[in-house]
Structures are given as C-alpha cells and as structure tokens.
C-alpha cells in the first residue's frame, strides 16, 4: 500500500528538514535563494519537497512538503490532490504562531475534513507559549479533532512519531486505511 502524506506549515518550521530526517531516498527539493527580508533564512521551498519511507507493515509513505508562504497557495491545492493526511508544523519561536496555524487550517480545510491531521509544535522547549493546551483548545473551537505534540523535526524519531499519530488518526476515522484507500 502507498499513501500520500502532506507536510505544511509556516516558512522556517522545518518541512524540508522533517522530510530529510526520515526519507529513505534522496529527498527531492525545490529550494531557491530567499530574497524576502521578513523571513530569516537563506533558502526557501518554492515548488515541493518529496521523500519516501517504508513502514514496518510494508506500507510505503510518500511525503510531500509544500511551500509555507501564502503566495504559493496554488501549490497547496495541487499537492493536496489524492493525499491521505496532513501534518501541520508550527514554529513557536516565530511571531503569532496560533494565527499561522489557522492559516493552514483554512488553506487545507478540504483535506482536513476529508482525511486526518496532526499538528507538530516546534521550538517549544525554548518558547513554551502558546502551550499545547492553547492549541488543542483552538482546534476544538474550530471543530478540528487533531493531536498536538511537541516536535524536533531534525530528529528522525520525532518525525516518525508524527507519521505514526497521523496513521492512527486515520485508522480511527476510517476504520481501516488499507480497505478505504
């Protein structure tokens, strides 16, 4: 079985890094030099990231990362086609991380409604606010049922945990992912 999983979230949250941390193939990435002074990093994804991972059960996951910036919203729609689940990465060290989360909840609302979603909060150790409960409450207010966990996207184990949570979430939602897709 093959499943397509989408990683999204704010620019700089580590989507490219997360895919690189778990992919068993050389990840495809479309990074170019960043010219946006509002974003403090040398390179940014403008097309998509792609990686693959095989799970113990024989399932193969195809991981697609999106650009974070809203000007690439058309790529969000393209990459969402046929996807089985969504991981949203939040960077707690940036300004207004809660608002950032809402941008992606809105931008991917169809995918979230149709499949499952997990939210990973990055740099929480150094920037504890908003807390996990704050995020969980906001998600609940919006009627989105979705786990929220702290994550260090450089750590393979952390990214695997996100994928594991997502698959569990899917099984709960659909009964059995292999039969439903």
């Amino acid at each position: 079985m093959e499943h397509k999983i989408v990683l999204t979230g704010v620019t700089g949250a580590g989507k490219t890094t997360a895919i690189g941390a778990v992919s068993e193939i050389d990840p495809v990435n479309t990074d170019v030099r960043n010219t946006d002074a509002a974003v403090a990093k040398p390179f940014t994804t403008v097309g998509l990231d792609y990686g693959e991972i095989r799970l113990d059960g024989g399932q193969r996951l195809r991981l697609y990362g999106t650009p974070g910036q809203a000007r690439f919203e058309f790529m969000w729609r393209i990459v969402s086609q046929g996807a089985l689940g969504l991981i949203i990465l939040v960077d707690n060290s940036q300004d207004a991380p809660m608002e950032a989360l809402e941008t992606y909840l809105d931008g991917f609302s169809d995918l979230i409604e149709r499949t499952a979603c997990v939210v990973g909060i990055g740099r929480q150790a150094t920037h504890p606010e908003p807390g996990l409960d704050d995020y969980a409450n906001r998600l609940a207010e919006r009627g989105v049922l979705c786990p929220v966990v702290p994550v260090d996207v450089r750590e393979r184990a952390d990214v695997l945990m996100l994928l594991d949570l997502l698959l569990t979430q899917l099984e709960m939602k659909t009964g059995n992912i292999d039969e439903s897709f």
Binding site: T30, V32, G47, R71, F74
Partner: peptide, 17 residues
C-alpha cells in the same frame, strides 16, 4: 503578475528538478 510570479517560481523549480 503577482500570482504568476509565484507560479513561475514553482514551475521553474520543478523544471530544474
């Protein structure tokens, strides 16, 4: 023009790949 700029960026990046 603004939207096309973002799309050109994505398409060129995919072209490179």
């Amino acid at each position: 023009a603004s939207r096309l700029s973002a799309m050109a960026s994505s398409m060129a990046a995919l072209g490179v790949m």
